[in-house]
């Protein structure tokens, strides 16, 4: 037999309850999307942890590079005026 190729890797995202985002929780190996979905169900929702599952081929995900961290994320750090606490509103103005 020829050298066996491993089934591709899929990343698994689960919505744990209505109103929440899907959250990454791990991966499975599967030959196709249906199998990936079912394996995700059998592996990651054994204790009713989910109401919705996404599976995505791992190699379809583009990730930011750690060494780009400074240029990507630090410029946001000094934009403090985007946060509500930046503004002083007198108590008399009521809840805002």
């Amino acid at each position: 037999m020829t050298e066996e190729k491993e089934w591709p890797l899929w990343e698994v995202f689960i919505r744990s309850k209505a109103g929440l985002d899907h959250k990454h929780c791990g991966s499975v190996h599967a030959s196709d999307a249906e199998m990936a979905m079912e394996s995700a169900r059998d592996v990651y929702t054994r204790r009713s942890e989910g109401i919705s599952i996404w599976v995505v081929p791992s190699n379809a995900i583009t990730a930011s590079k750690p060494e780009d961290k400074e240029s990507l994320f630090e410029p946001a750090d000094d934009k403090i005026y985007r946060h509500p606490t930046f503004y002083d509103i007198p108590q008399g103005a009521g809840k805002m």
């Binding site: 890797l9 990343e11 791992s58 190699n59 379809a60 995900i61 583009t62 990730a63 930011s64 590079k65 750690p66 060494e67």
Partner: peptide
């Protein structure tokens, strides 16, 4: 630019 950065494999640095 970002295309070589799949989460499946560690990035290669020189």
């Amino acid at each position: 630019m970002y295309g070589d950065t799949s989460i499946q494999k560690p990035i290669e640095i020189a």
